[in-house]
């Protein structure tokens, strides 16, 4: 899976994601971890691969990391930002 044409950027101390083509007419606000997951999703990847990268980056158990990854992906899916 991967994100569609999404721009992830920092603005005023928070991370936001918007679609360049306007397919999602809104904006997702994210914390640093969610932004890390979103960045990982900018290329073709899997839940497992992102979880592993998250565990490398932060001191977190694989269970908690995977839970976070799935929650962020679910949010992107609800907004229709995941390319099938």
């Amino acid at each position: 899976m991967k994100l569609k044409d999404v721009i992830i950027t920092e603005a005023n101390g928070e991370y936001v994601a918007v679609t360049a083509d306007g397919s999602f007419n809104g904006m997702i606000r994210m914390n640093k971890t969610a932004a890390f997951i979103a960045e990982a999703l900018s290329e073709e990847t899997t839940v497992e691969a992102i979880t592993a990268r998250l565990c490398e980056k932060y001191e977190v158990t694989p269970e908690i990391a995977e839970d976070n990854v799935r929650k962020v992906i679910a949010q992107f899916e609800r907004a229709g930002l995941i390319a099938k």
């Binding site: 918007v18 360049a20 904006m27």
Partner: peptide, 14 residues
Amino acid sequence: ADMTLRKEILFDAE
């Protein structure tokens, strides 16, 4: 406010 920020981000990227 959100739409203004979104627009600026899109403008900047484009």
